Computed example of a mutant assay.
Amino acid sequence: MAPVSYHEANGLVAGYVCAACWGPLSAHPVDDGVDIHCGECGAATPGFVSMRYTEKRKSESLAQYYLARKALREAVPWFFPAKKVPDQLLKDLGY
């Protein structure tokens, strides 16, 4: 990516994340401006996405996770056994 101005760099670092890993961005001064890199991917950053987009996708994914977990619990009940109280666990262990 071509270097950007200091003003643009502040906006990018504050409101955007790496498009590949959603990691934070960092600014690195160069001769003709500022290079923006991902802290995780480094200079191989494919692009940027807004933090608002990532928060929206995370909330959608969390909702899908809860629906899938509920469906799995209904389909395979032995996969999620009922929780026991500590007294019952000790009794099962022979104490």
Rank of each mutant, 00 (worst) to 15 (best):
M1G: 06
M1K: 05
P3M: 08
P3F: 12
P3K: 12
P3Q: 10
P3A: 13
P3D: 13
V4I: 13
V4L: 03
S5D: 07
S5N: 08
H7K: 07
H7G: 05
E8H: 14
E8G: 11
A9G: 08
A9C: 07
N10E: 14
N10Q: 14
N10G: 14
G11F: 05
L12S: 00
L12K: 00
L12M: 05
V13G: 01
V13K: 02
V13L: 02
A14H: 02
G15M: 06
Y16T: 00
Y16C: 02
V17I: 04
V17A: 01
V17F: 00
C18W: 00
A19S: 13
A19K: 07
A20T: 07
A20I: 05
A20R: 15
A20N: 12
C21K: 15
W22I: 03
W22M: 08
G23L: 03
G23W: 00
P24F: 03
L25N: 03
L25V: 05
L25M: 06
L25W: 02
A27C: 01
A27D: 00
H28I: 05
H28Y: 07
P29D: 04
P29A: 04
V30H: 04
D31I: 14
G33S: 03
V34M: 11
D35W: 01
I36N: 04
H37F: 09
C38T: 00
C38V: 03
C38P: 01
C38I: 00
G39M: 10
E40R: 11
E40K: 13
C41T: 00
C41V: 00
G42A: 01
G42T: 04
A43M: 04
A43W: 07
A44K: 12
T45G: 05
P46L: 03
F48H: 15
V49Q: 06
V49W: 05
S50R: 08
S50G: 12
S50K: 04
S50F: 06
S50L: 03
M51L: 06
R52Y: 12
Y53F: 15
T54R: 10
E55L: 13
E55K: 08
K56G: 07
K56N: 06
K56C: 06
R57T: 15
R57A: 15
K58S: 12
K58R: 11
E60H: 04
S61A: 13
L62N: 09
L62F: 12
L62R: 11
A63R: 15
Q64W: 13
A68L: 14
A68W: 13
R69D: 06
K70M: 10
K70I: 09
K70E: 14
A71Q: 12
L72K: 02
L72D: 02
R73G: 15
E74W: 01
E74F: 01
E74K: 10
A75C: 00
A75W: 02
V76L: 11
V76N: 09
P77N: 03
P77S: 03
W78P: 06
W78N: 09
F79Y: 14
F79L: 13
F80N: 09
P81I: 06
P81T: 08
P81W: 05
A82C: 10
K83C: 07
K84T: 12
V85E: 13
P86Q: 09
D87N: 07
D87G: 02
Q88L: 09
L89I: 15
L89N: 10
K91G: 06
D92R: 03
D92G: 05
D92F: 01
D92A: 07
L93A: 15
